[in-house]
Amino acid sequence: MNPDKRSAVELMIRYGFLVLMAGLIVFFGSTAEGFLTPFSAVFILQSVAITGILALGVTATLVVGGFDLSIGAVATSALMLSSYVMVVWELSAFWAVLLCLLMGAAVGLVNGLLIVKMKVPDLLATLGMMFLLVGAQRIPTEGRSISTGMSLPDGSTANGTFSEGFLMLGRHRLDLILPDLLPLSVVFLIAIAVAVWVFLELTRHGRLMYAIGSNAQAAALAGANVNRYKVVAYMISGVLASVGGILLAARLGRGDVASGNNLLLDAVAAALIGFAVLGASKPNAFGTAIGALFVGILLQGLTMLNAPYYTQDFIKGAVLVVALVFTFALSARGSRGRG
């Protein structure tokens, strides 16, 4: 390969995805009326906030060479748990949030221990946990959705309500330049993305987690506590998934058993698209956030162009496949050593 061609490929790997995204924005901006407005931008952000937060959790497990398939189930469990705590137990929003976060951490801990202590392969352990949670969250209400006034299995009526403070988490909008512009959930997404990025890129713990993902044996022989870091990664994933579930509950205002079906696949897609951003070829927080944003822009633009809703999954899948080609085929060619 001659040098010019080589550097062209490198440029393409590095900036290809960002260019594609810029092109998409220009395209939708010129064809879809009202696409290039602050409210449209905020709508996109809001639509990706929950999947983005889940995707950042998956990213943490991908970094240590694992995979967490239980995030969607953790999120819907948090949705049901927070509703149950407030509507049936009639406790405050504080307890709802606290118990959800503890539940997420506990699920992550169990996932991690299944993987490092019981040696269950990561996909299988978290798949098992997914089924377990999907089932468990329906038992207390005998499969029904949770809302104020529902009748309980013991014949009584649930009188609790979602507190205003809790609903604010999912619905409140801050004034930023324009009144009522910035949803609180978007603030959470940005704060969590920055925190995960800082943790993974700038701290020694993040560095060790990347080392574990690349060669766990070498990391162990260099003195890293591999098992502890793996468990921590699954706990991060569990906690972030429960945050996503809390925000979903706050947005819906009821414990809807049918919501959150797409969370897992969308989050995984965002994290994998993230591999391609800036030619990282590895899981990374910045790429994941961009990946989530990319999917959001695409879907919002298509919606505004009146593309039918049922084409959305197809287009997400196509984007994912293109991103994976960017990551694996092109970067493997660019960086192949002589071995």
């Binding site: 990347y210 080392a211 993902g213 690349s214 060669n215 044996q217 070498a218 990391a219 022989l221 260099a222 590895k282």
Partner: peptide, 9 residues
């Protein structure tokens, strides 16, 4: 390659 090298680094 098994015990020491972190290939991604």
């Amino acid at each position: 390659l098994i015990n020491a090298v972190v290939a991604d680094f």
